[in-house]
Amino acid sequence: MIRESNLNALVLILLLAVPLWAVFNDEPFTITLATRAVIFALAAVGLNIALGLGGLVSFGHAVFFGIGGYAMGIFAHHAQTYTPVMEVPFLIEGTKSMPVIWLVAMVTSGFAALLIGLLSLRTAGVYFIMITLAFGQMLYYFSISWATYGGEDGLSIYVRNEFPGVNTLVPINFFAICFVILCLVVLLNALLAKSPFGLALNAARQTPQRVQTFGLDPTRLKLLAFIISGVVTGLAGALFADLNRFVSPTMFSWQMSGEIMIFIILGGVARLCGPIVGAVTFVMLEHFLGGLSDYWHIYLGALLLIVVLFARGGLVGLISGREIAHD
C-alpha cells in the first residue's frame, strides 16, 4: 500500500519521465501518446471538480471539451485563411496565439457552463445526468449541421498554434506546455478542495440543509463548481484540438462525455490523481490492445469490467487502499 499523496507525486513523475525517455530514444510517437494522456487527464480533472467535489454527475462535459476545441478551430481557421471571425458589431480577427485562444476557450466554456448549470441544477440525480446529456446532443447535432466550419468533416488546421518563446511543433515542447498546465490545475484542485469554498461544497453535496443553515446557497456553490469544471475541460478541449490540429463534432459526442467520465471512474472518484491515472491507463490500453487483434474492444471491455467488480474506488483505491469519505 502506498499513501495517496506519495502516489500522486509518483504518477506525475512517471508521466514526466516517459516522454523525457522518449526524447533520448527518438520515439516521438510516445511523446504524442503521453500528450494525449495529459490532455485527457486535464479534461477529467476538470470534470472531477464537478463530479468529485460537487457530486454533479455530468454526462455532457463533451460540450465544454468541444467548445474549447472549436474556439481553437475557429480562430486558427480564420487566421490561416486571413478572414475575420466576425465584423459586426465589432471586428474580431483570427489568431494563432495559444494564450489568446485558451482565454477564449475558457471564457466561452465558462459562459456555457453558467447557462447549462443554471438550467440543469434545477434537477438532481439521474435527471441531472440526462439533462446534461441532452445539452451535449444539442451541440453535437448543431456542429454537424454547421456548414461554415466544416460540419461533420470538421476543421483542419495545418500548423500547430504558437506559444510565445516556445516552438510548439517540437512534440516535447508541446507536451511540456500541457504538462505544466495539468500540474497547475491539479494544484488548483487541491487548494480548492481545502478552501472554504471546497469545504462548503463538500458539505452541500452531503447534506444541503447543513449549508443552508449557515446562510449559504447550495445551488450557487454547485453552480460555481460546475463553471470552474467547465472552464478546465474547455481548456483541455483547446489543447486537444491543438494536439490533433483538427476539430470535429466527435468532440461533442456523448461517447466523448462518457470517456471523460470513465477516466475518472477507472482511476477513482474524488481522488486528486484518479482522473490522471484513469486517463493514462485508458490511453495505454487503447494503444497496446489495439495491436493485439481487430476485436480488441472485447479485451478492453473485460478489463474495465474487472476493475469495476474487483477494484472499488478505482485504480487509485486499489493501490492506496484507504477509502476516503466521498459519500
Binding site: P28, F29, T32, L33, N244, R245, F246, S248, G290, D294
Partner: peptide, 21 residues
C-alpha cells in the same frame, strides 16, 4: 496497418505514429 476506429482524432494520432515512429 492500423485501425482508426472511424475516429478522426485516432486517425490523426496514427498518422503521427506512421510519420514519426
Amino acid at each position: 496497418i492500423e485501425d482508426d476506429q472511424r475516429k478522426p482524432d485516432i486517425a490523426v494520432q496514427l498518422a503521427d505514429k506512421m510519420i514519426q515512429s
